[in-house]
Design a protein around this nucleic acid. Structure first.
Lengths: 171, 171
DNA sequence: TATTGTTATACTCTATAACTATA
DNA sequence: TATAGTTATAGAGTATAACAATA
């Protein structure tokens, strides 16, 4: 508690707050890391007229999986009502198309147009660069460790098992 | 591509989207992990009348560091104008107090009240439980690894070095 | 002239409820 | 009756610009 009067200039060096309980909090660190990362990603996507949200939807539309809007909502942890304007935006730009499912006329599956596929490829490359930049404090091995740990946190065991089974069934 | 018509029931198992490029994206995983974590944290904080944002400010006020509003903004990656209503909210509940700095009358440092200290201790415990729950797919060692990797990503090398120097100067 | 805290404003994100059309 | 997509709405988060007081 010997915080002498001398070390309190105008800015006071906000970094001294790094020595706080909060700075040791995993959730705080994750929030801050994500804020930095998504700012970089959004900046990289701006030149393509995309944001993280719309890019995520476009990317999923470009996998040949033909997801329904409900699936997109579940997977992106969004409410179904939030998906609607995101798809509207992409559809207005002719990047994706809602295709009614004749077997269940309630369903609309999302498919990418050729234009959408092309833009997605370019955007994916820009996102990869932005991610690499955001992780430049980490070695390649550390980045991979981070990815696998986040994978475990982001999905329940049931979800991970289910995804693995689906993958095995396809191959 | 042998996605037979049989495996497409109503819900279509959104987990099949886990086999997508997006699901391998670190930023997407971080966003999803954080969404799950902050939902849990906000739920845990609700009984104390706090949210992640206000808890973060209260927590920093309870460290005896007497941060200025500008420091809080820098550290929490918020605009100074966003800090104002957060402190207003805490001050209205008598949890913190803005104290003018007589040496520079532009500055207002944030100090916690006794009531604030007490609430913070209880809230910190609830947040720790919520975090443990969010990370329950990880071993203790993995959690610690995740924390140290996020630490490196969340702060620049300069910030980490600066914080270390300040810590050493105090001891 | 620069900085701190503040007000104002707008846009995005998040969450909820209710409606429609299909099943 | 249950589900998919949609509309509407409100609150929280994010970002910017401009202002008064002070340095």
């Amino acid at each position: 508690m010997s915080a002498g009067p001398d070390n309190a200039p105008a800015a006071r060096e906000a970094t001294r707050l790094l020595n706080s309980d909060l700075a040791a909090n995993v959730e705080f660190l994750a929030a801050r890391a994500r804020a930095m990362g998504s700012a970089k990603a959004n900046a990289a996507l701006a030149e393509f007229g995309l944001r993280v949200r719309t890019y995520s939807v476009l990317s999923l539309a470009c996998q040949g999986l033909e997801p329904t809007q409900r699936e997109l909502a579940d997977f992106l942890s969004l409410d179904p009502s939030q998906i609607v304007p995101l798809i509207d935006e992409l559809e207005n730009q002719k990047l994706v198309r809602r295709r009614p499912d004749p077997r269940d006329r309630r369903l609309k599956v999302l498919v990418a147009t050729a234009k959408g596929e092309k833009l997605n490829a370019a955007a994916a490359s820009a996102v990869a660069s932005a991610t690499a930049e955001a992780l430049d404090s980490l070695t390649a091995e550390e980045s991979e460790t981070l990815r696998s740990l986040l994978w475990k946190v982001a999905f329940t065991k049931e979800e991970r098992d289910s995804a693995r089974q689906i993958l095995e069934a396809v191959s």
